[in-house]
């Protein structure tokens, strides 16, 4: 398998539970990188803390496994010092949008060139199934035994409002679309956000009686629709997937280079 060249086989089988969607995200990400024909040396994967963040240990690129919610801050440091590298930041939903919520919106606002992947399983899996900012109203979690009363963020709308220049969503069922979107996101110059609906059969699934991993993927199949479809107009509850935003905007590192140039001119 070509993608086997991109993993650290010594750490397999990985720690993720049977049927965990995060493994499918890893699978798709490796295929996207393989299709782009990128060299391992030009990729940096930076992650925070959580089930999702274990991904950085499994990929054979330059990797950083950092603090909870702070992956984007570390990634910003890497990118600013070596802008020629491709920086990919896989995060969980809690990691990206609760603890790391500020880093997320400000990275989007700056439009710094990196790819943020929000692996949305709607729960904190590693610590035992606490509700996350994407669990949503009415769901059950270890910390919400009488149902959750917090509303969820819409990752796509949040990223769009914060100024990300590439925003997309897919699921672990739609693997071909996911690989294609990840390719586009990595190639895009600017801050790219890809939300991936990723099943947690162990906690979110079991607490909310969503069945097996395959059942949860059937849910993604039956309850999502391509962005802008007529099905969405007929059934507003469907979750849209596809590319929502793709625009050219000044990129942060490039703008910073201009500042350096300007400052050097004035001081000389």
């Amino acid at each position: 398998m070509a993608i086997k060249g991109y993993i650290r086989e010594r750490f397999f089988p990985h720690i993720w539970c049977p049927g965990c969607g995060h493994g499918i995200v890893l699978n798709s990400l490796l295929r996207a990188i393989d299709k782009l024909g990128m060299s391992k040396n030009e990729i940096v994967v930076v992650s925070g803390i959580g089930c999702s963040s274990r991904i950085s240990g499994y990929v054979d690129f330059h990797t950083l496994h950092t603090l909870h919610g702070r992956a984007l801050a570390f990634a910003t440091g890497v990118k600013m010092s070596l802008p020629e590298l491709n920086v990919i930041v896989p995060m969980g939903d809690g990691d990206a949008l609760a603890i790391g919520g500020n880093h997320f919106i400000h990275s989007a606002r700056r439009n710094i060139d990196m790819t943020a992947i929000v692996m949305n399983n709607r729960i904190y899996g590693m610590t035992g199934g606490q509700y996350s900012p994407l669990s949503g109203y009415g769901t059950l979690a270890t910390t919400a035994p009488y149902t959750n009363i917090d509303n969820a963020f819409d990752t796509v709308e949040l990223a769009t409002a914060a100024g990300a220049s590439f925003v997309a969503r897919s699921t672990t069922y739609h693997v071909q679309q996911l690989t294609k979107i990840l390719k586009q996101a990595i190639l895009h110059e600017g801050f790219s956000v890809v939300e991936v609906l990723s099943q947690c059969p162990t906690y979110f699934g079991r607490k909310n009686r969503k069945g097996t991993a395959a059942d949860m993927m059937e849910y993604y199949k039956n309850n999502t629709t391509p962005v802008g479809s007529t099905a969405k107009k007929e059934n507003p509850d469907l979750i849209e997937r596809g590319v929502f935003v793709e625009k050219e905007m000044p990129e942060y590192c490039k703008e910073y280079d201009k500042i350096i140039e300007r400052a050097m001119k004035e001081s000389s």
Binding site: M1, I7, F12, P13, L26, T172, V175, Q176, T179, M217
Partner: peptide, 8 residues
């Protein structure tokens, strides 16, 4: 192959 979470 594409959907296997374990690359197995």
């Amino acid at each position: 192959e594409l959907r296997c979470p374990d690359l197995a």
